[in-house]
Simulated assay, not measured.
Amino acid sequence: MSIAVLLADDQPLLRMGFRMILDAQPDMTVAGEAADGDEAVERAAALAPDVVLMDVRMPGTDGIEATRRIVASGSRTRVLILTTFDLDEYAFAGLRAGAGGFLLKDAPPDDLLSGIRAVAAGDAVVAPSVTRRLLDAYAHRLPDGHAPATRAARLDPLTEREREVLLAVAGGLSNAEIAARLVVSEATVKTHVGRILTKLGLRDRVQAVILAYETGLVQASQR
């Protein structure tokens, strides 16, 4: 089945470039375009695309708020944030708002395409190495109103093995890499990840990574 993508960016030339890349793929179609956050929310509701390729900085309602609204609507649409890491500290806020992942704007076309496919398939960690750098830079700026002990208690439902898997996920490892590290099958890792998400009431791997940082499971020496 074809992956329907909504392009949300305030720069027409960038949207045109993304459209040309996506239109050349046999498994993707461009469902529509949006020039700002409000339009992105409206078009996502009307078109129900599989993925919204969302710029962060747009006039009026930005990509963060647009992402939050799309996710809050209960739509099956997933959001892939586009950011410039060196300048844009709002990318992490986008993940907290419910984005399925993020890419740098200067990512090679192949990375963009694989990222869209990954997010459409429900794999939230698009670029693990970049994820780690972004989390390292901004996780400490994200107060959630809870004492450290209270935050850590959120992990109490997990078994020791599930904590190991969560720590590996937070380190940006793929299921195959986690399986090799723990000497188990990839299917076993997938089962562990699914149980972690269920026990902690999380939507996807990105939320799991965020929680690992917020609860202190990932320590400074491990980053």
Rank of each mutant, 00 (worst) to 15 (best):
P12M: 01
G98A: 02
R78D: 04
A40T: 02
A40E: 03
R163N: 10
P49G: 08
V184S: 00
L13C: 03
I21L: 10
V126C: 13
S221P: 08
Y213P: 13
S185R: 12
L167S: 09
R57T: 14
V5K: 04
K105L: 15
Q219K: 15
L202K: 00
R117Q: 14
Q25K: 10
K105M: 12
A168R: 03
D86P: 04
R161H: 12
R151A: 14
L200S: 03
M16W: 00
G171P: 09
I21E: 00
D106I: 07
T67M: 02
A176L: 15
L155I: 11
P128N: 12
V218G: 02
R96M: 15
S129L: 11
L47K: 07
A124H: 07
T188D: 11
V52K: 04
I210S: 08
D110N: 13
L135C: 12
I178S: 07
S129N: 13
L217G: 05
V125A: 09
L167V: 11
D88I: 01
A180P: 10
L211T: 03
T188Y: 13
A179F: 01
G171L: 06
L202P: 05
R117G: 11
E162T: 04
D111T: 12
A176K: 10
A176V: 10
Y138V: 13
S2N: 12
P26S: 15
V71F: 03
V79G: 01
A176N: 12
D136S: 15
G74Y: 06
D136C: 15
D36S: 04
